[in-house]
Amino acid sequence: MESLYTPLAAFLALILLPPLYRVLRGPTVFDRLLGASVIGNKTIVISCLFGFAFGRIEMFLDIALGYAILNFVGAVAIEKYFSSEEASR
């Protein structure tokens, strides 16, 4: 498994591109938010992989956990804002 960390992280970074396209081009603001949250999900896994690759798993895990919580809270907060906004597209 040790030799797989870097290639797997690189592959995960590569499949960040479709959601990035959604964030940049998404026809509605909700598509953009969806793309952003998918990028957040993958970033959590990548950060855990980095922890294993650098041998500092406990530090990177805390970062991943904080990132997960911020991702969730941020998504819900922005959704609350846009559900009350009329011209959100």
């Binding site: 909700f30 997960a68 969730f72 998504a75 609350k80 559900s83 959100s88």
Partner: peptide
Amino acid sequence: FVAVSSPVAAHALARAAVRS
């Protein structure tokens, strides 16, 4: 945490989309 938060976030997003 992901198992609990991801359906809530998806539901909130979909509801916001329908309401708008």
